[in-house]
């Protein structure tokens, strides 16, 4: 079932692209000039704090909400106008899965698969085994994690080109989370496109080719993890012979903590060379430096300004 092994250059480089998306609910502006583009065949991480508009964006993509403004192209179509035909090529997993209480998990997987235009029986059985789900139980007896599995299996077993996953691992235990990562890695090999909204930064770091970070309905960062890291700081810890008095006055050095001859700081990538040279001159004994984790990247965007007012270009 592998349609493409290599991401195609043409006919459509982007599986979906959103530009200038705006959506208000009454006076509340949920999405404000949002940008998001997902290349065909990539796993794209979609990050943002609670209430930042991730789910609203996904609901616009599914044609459930109508955009107030903005250009949206989804698999070459308009998600509002062409909802039904587009949905044959999309599988969606909601963040908070509610199921029909009096249907069994198996019945629901079967139903959703059929309505998406086909379910691969062999793959369904394999997924049921991998996720250790008993499909014979009524949905009312499932825990949150098991409900999530029902929606996940139905989506992964479908032949959809694009998977839209809204915090799909919320409620899964760590073992199942690992299974999920394996499955997504497989999907990427198969050339399926995945939009993965998530809070689990380790998951995004492990799986995603590119990420988009939004806040208050606006896109604030977008690119590969390497690109994002380039604009951020490296954490440096050093043990020195002398006290690094001049460190505070150097360009691009932040968050200095000194403890006798031990120093911790974060350094802008561009200034890293100069800082290391200076530290050597102070009698460097040991040094650890580490690129910022996604978590630090993420926190930097949200801690600076808890009130939510935009401070960036």
């Amino acid at each position: 079932m592998s349609q493409q092994n290599q991401a195609p250059t043409s006919p459509s480089e982007y599986a979906l692209s959103i530009d200038g998306l705006t959506k208000s609910f009454g006076n509340f502006r949920a999405l404000d000039n949002l940008r998001l583009s997902v290349r065909t065949g990539e796993v794209h991480g979609f990050l943002g704090p609670n209430g930042s508009g991730k789910t609203t964006t996904i609901r616009v993509l599914l044609g459930l909400l109508q955009a107030d403004a903005g250009e949206i192209s989804l698999l070459g179509g308009n998600p509002w106008r062409d909802a039904v035909s587009l949905h044959r090529r999309i599988a969606y997993v909601p963040g908070d899965v509610t199921l029909w209480a009096n249907l069994t998990g198996g019945e629901i997987i079967d139903l959703l698969g059929r309505l998406r235009g086909g379910l691969d029986a062999a793959r369904t059985s394999a997924l049921l085994e991998r996720f250790e789900l008993d499909p014979r139980k009524k949905a009312r007896t499932y825990s949150k994690g098991n409900r999530q599995k029902v929606a996940l299996i139905a989506a992964l077993a479908s032949n959809a080109e694009l998977l839209i996953l809204d915090e799909p691992t919320s409620g899964l235990d760590p073992l199942m989370e690992a299974t999920f990562r394996e499955c997504i890695a497989d999907e990427r090999k198969q050339g399926r496109t995945v939009l993965l909204s998530s809070h689990i930064l380790g998951e995004v770091e492990a799986l995603c080719d590119r990420v988009t970070i939004i806040r208050n309905g606006r896109t604030i960062e977008s690119g590969t993890l390497a690109e994002l890291r380039h604009f951020t700081r490296t954490a440096v810890s050093a043990e020195l012979h002398t006290t690094p008095d001049a460190l505070g006055s150097m360009n691009g050095v932040h968050d200095i903590q000194t403890d006798g001859h031990n120093v911790h700081c974060t350094v802008d990538s561009a200034e890293l060379g100069a800082v290391l040279t200076y530290l050597s001159s102070c009698g460097l004994q040991s040094l650890t430096s580490r690129p910022p984790t996604l978590e630090e990247l993420f926190l930097r965007h949200y801690q600076h300004d808890p009130s939510g007012k935009e401070e960036q270009p």
Binding site: G105, G106, L111, R114, R136, K138
Partner: peptide, 29 residues
């Protein structure tokens, strides 16, 4: 109600008679 469910092991092929359309789903509800 969960007792009866035991008798319907999930084998996708045999599910063809089951809930396969919105209409069938609505009937179940």
């Amino acid at each position: 109600s969960s007792r009866g469910a035991e008798h319907h092991p999930f084998i996708p092929k045999t599910m063809s008679w089951a809930v396969q359309s919105p209409l069938a789903l609505a009937w179940r509800l």
